[in-house]
C-alpha cells in the first residue's frame, strides 16, 4: 500500500513540479484555449444570443483543458513513453502499473485545474460573465465525480493505446472535435436530442458539464437531466471506468508483451 502511494506521488511529481519549472506552459495553457473560447463567444455575439450562452462557452472552454489533458497526457502517454524509451523502465519497476496511471491522473488533474480555473476567471472577466452557484456541495460533488470518471476513462484509453504506434497520435486527434461536438462543450447538450445526448453521455464530461451549467447558470433552463440523476450516473461511471481500466491494463500489457510491441519506436 505504501509502495502504491509512493508510486502515485512519484509519478505525479514531475507533472506537479513541471508547473513550477516551466511557467510558460501555464501561459500557453490559458492563452491558447482562450483564443478558441473568444472566437465562439463572438459567434454568439454575432447571433445576438442571450448572455448565458457566453457563460456556456466559457465553462465549456475551461473543461476542454481536462479533455485535452486526458487525451494527450493520459491516453497517449504510454505511446510517448515508448517513443522516448521509458516504457520498459516503467514495466520493469517493482510497482503497480495502476499506481503509475493514477499518479499521471493525479498530477494531470492538479496542473490542469490551475489552467481551467485561469481560463474560467480570465474568460469571465473579459466577457463580463456572472455565475450564480445554486448549491456548492452539489457543484463540488459533480466536479469530483466527473473528474474521477474522466480520468478513469483516460486510464482505460492509456492501456488501450499501449498497442498503438503512430495511429495513437491520430486517434487522439480524432477524439477532439467530435467529442467537443457530442459533449456539447460550446452549446447545451439537450439540443442534440434525447438519444444522441444519452449516447454522448458515455464521455463523463457530457453530463458533468451539463450539471455544472445547471448549477452555475440556473436561469438558462437548458439542462438535459436533473442534477441528481446526473450525479448518480457519474458516480456509477467513476466506479466502472476505474475498474475496467484496471482489467484492461493487465490484458493489454500481456498482449503487448506477447506481440512484442512494448519497445517498438518510430513506428
Amino acid at each position: 500500500m505504501i509502495l502504491f502511494l509512493r508510486t502515485v506521488l512519484g509519478r505525479a511529481y514531475p507533472r506537479l513540479i513541471g508547473i513550477q519549472r516551466e511557467k510558460s506552459w501555464l501561459i500557453f495553457g490559458v492563452f491558447l484555449p482562450l483564443l478558441g473560447v473568444s472566437a465562439y463567444v463572438f459567434i454568439y455575439k454575432a447571433l445576438k444570443s442571450p448572455p448565458e450562452f457566453v457563460g456556456f462557452v466559457i465553462l465549456g472552454g475551461a473543461m476542454t483543458a481536462y479533455w485535452l489533458n486526458v487525451l494527450w497526457s493520459m491516453a497517449t502517454q504510454f505511446y510517448w513513453e515508448k517513443e522516448t524509451g521509458n516504457l520498459q523502465l516503467y514495466l520493469m519497476a517493482p510497482t503497480s502499473r495502476m499506481a503509475i496511471l493514477m499518479g499521471m491522473a493525479f498530477g494531470g488533474l492538479v496542473s490542469t485545474s490551475i489552467r481551467a480555473a485561469a481560463i474560467l476567471i480570465v474568460g469571465s472577466l473579459i466577457f463580463s460573465v456572472h455565475f450564480t452557484v445554486v448549491s456548492w456541495w452539489q457543484l463540488i460533488l459533480v466536479f469530483l465525480f466527473t473528474m474521477v470518471a474522466l480520468y478513469g476513462l483516460g486510464m482505460l484509453f492509456s492501456s488501450l493505446f499501449l498497442l498503438f504506434g503512430r495511429e495513437a497520435w491520430h486517434l487522439s486527434s480524432l477524439l477532439q472535435e467530435p467529442i467537443y461536438f457530442l459533449s456539447g462543450f460550446y452549446f447545451p447538450i439537450k439540443s442534440l436530442g434525447y438519444w444522441v445526448s444519452i449516447g454522448a453521455s458515455i464521455v463523463p464530461i457530457t453530463l458533468g458539464l451539463d450539471a455544472m451549467r445547471q448549477l452555475v447558470m440556473p436561469s438558462a433552463k437548458w439542462g438535459f437531466l436533473s442534477v441528481d440523476e446526473e450525479l448518480g450516473i457519474l458516480l456509477v461511471m467513476s466506479i466502472v471506468f476505474v475498474f475496467v481500466a484496471h482489467r484492461a491494463l493487465l490484458y493489454m500489457e500481456n498482449l503487448a508483451r506477447r506481440e512484442g510491441r512494448l519497445t517498438i519506436r518510430g513506428q
Binding site: L47, F53, L174, Q176, F185, Y186
Partner: peptide, 26 residues
Amino acid sequence: FLFLTYSILKPVASALILVFMYLVIS
C-alpha cells in the same frame, strides 16, 4: 477506410459545433 473515416469525422464534427450553436439561437 479508417483514414477516410478520420478525414470525414474531424471536419464534419467541427462544422457541426457551429451548426448547433447557430441552431439553438436561430
